[in-house]
């Protein structure tokens, strides 16, 4: 793929150059801002510019010692885990149901379930605020968990649907013919085989919850602030590298999660290739 074939024309070479420049630009705009900002969290001075006068852990210490940061971290984790668990369950069930060919109005149902991904979050947020207020679901964690479940479910639905598309129906049928109840077949056969899809969907739901700000702003009170909200207030009130330290921790956490999932997938793949 990197080697140009000998019969490449001038136009072909030009195309190749354009392609490489484009790839470089994508990389630059996507990754560079993050890479530039992260080292600043180790700055010994509270400024956001290079060159850094010295290295220090003070901003990390700052976070750990600050009660607001710790509360928001705890909230983020609770909301993230709870909403992911709910989204994974609901999204997987929805994908299973939607994979049945006999289901009527399939497109409409998918459209509705996926709408939180498409509708601007501000609109979702306002709607949720008005609706949840009626049921006392504002200013408390359950409200945020439900909201993030709604936002996270489409990710699970999509990735599990994709996993099911590659799933050979006869494998489940074989399980049944061998005497297993549909439930047993699901837990012992279908679920292990679509697990990669479930894990990816769960990771996406978790990350979407972890950095979701707009809906949290509508629903959370001071006690329920999450990390993104704390970062947001931090940026507005006292611009300090603590925010960057928090961001660094988040980035490392998320990259770690994705790597773990990838490793898991590779280890499984070594044992079996999904049967066509």
């Amino acid at each position: 793929m990197w080697q140009l074939s000998p019969h490449t024309t001038l136009l072909g070479k030009l195309w190749r150059c354009t392609f490489l420049v484009f790839c470089g630009a994508v990389f630059m705009f996507l990754v560079l801002p993050v890479l530039i900002v992260l080292p600043l969290s180790f700055n010994s001075e509270p400024y956001f510019n290079y060159p850094m006068p010295g290295f220090s852990w003070r901003w990390y210490q700052n976070i750990v010692e600050n009660e607001m940061w710790m509360v928001s971290a705890k909230n983020s984790i609770i909301v993230g885990l709870a909403s992911t668990a709910l989204a994974v369950t609901l999204g997987t069930l929805a994908a299973l149901g939607l994979s049945k060919p006999s289901l009527p109005l399939k497109k409409l149902i998918v459209g509705i379930l996926i709408s939180p991904m498409i509708v601007p979050l501000v609109i979702t947020g306002v709607g949720m605020y008005i609706f949840y207020a009626k049921y006392n679901l504002t200013g408390n964690l359950p409200g945020i968990i439900i909201a993030h479940t709604v936002i996270g479910t489409p990710f699970v639905l999509i990735s599990v649907t994709a996993a099911l598309a590659g799933f050979n129906l006869n494998i489940a049928r074989a399980g049944q013919s061998l005497g297993a109840t549909p439930t047993y077949v699901f837990f012992k056969i279908t679920m292990p085989l679509i697990m990669p899809g479930i894990i990816y969907g769960g990771l996406l739901a978790f990350t979407s919850s972890l950095d979701e700000l707009v809906v949290v702003m509508f629903l959370a009170g001071v006690e329920e602030r999450t990390i993104p909200m704390q970062m947001w207030t931090g940026l507005r009130e006292q611009l300090s590298p603590s925010v960057l330290a928090a961001a660094t921790i988040l980035v490392i956490l998320l990259v770690g999660l994705l790597l773990a999932a990838e490793l898991l997938r590779r280890r499984r793949e070594r044992y079996f290739v999904s049967a066509k």
Binding site: A174, G175, P192, V273, A275
Partner: peptide, 9 residues
């Protein structure tokens, strides 16, 4: 079945 349908895992 034609496509074996063994449990790959």
């Amino acid at each position: 079945f034609q496509n074996y349908a063994l449990f790959p895992h």
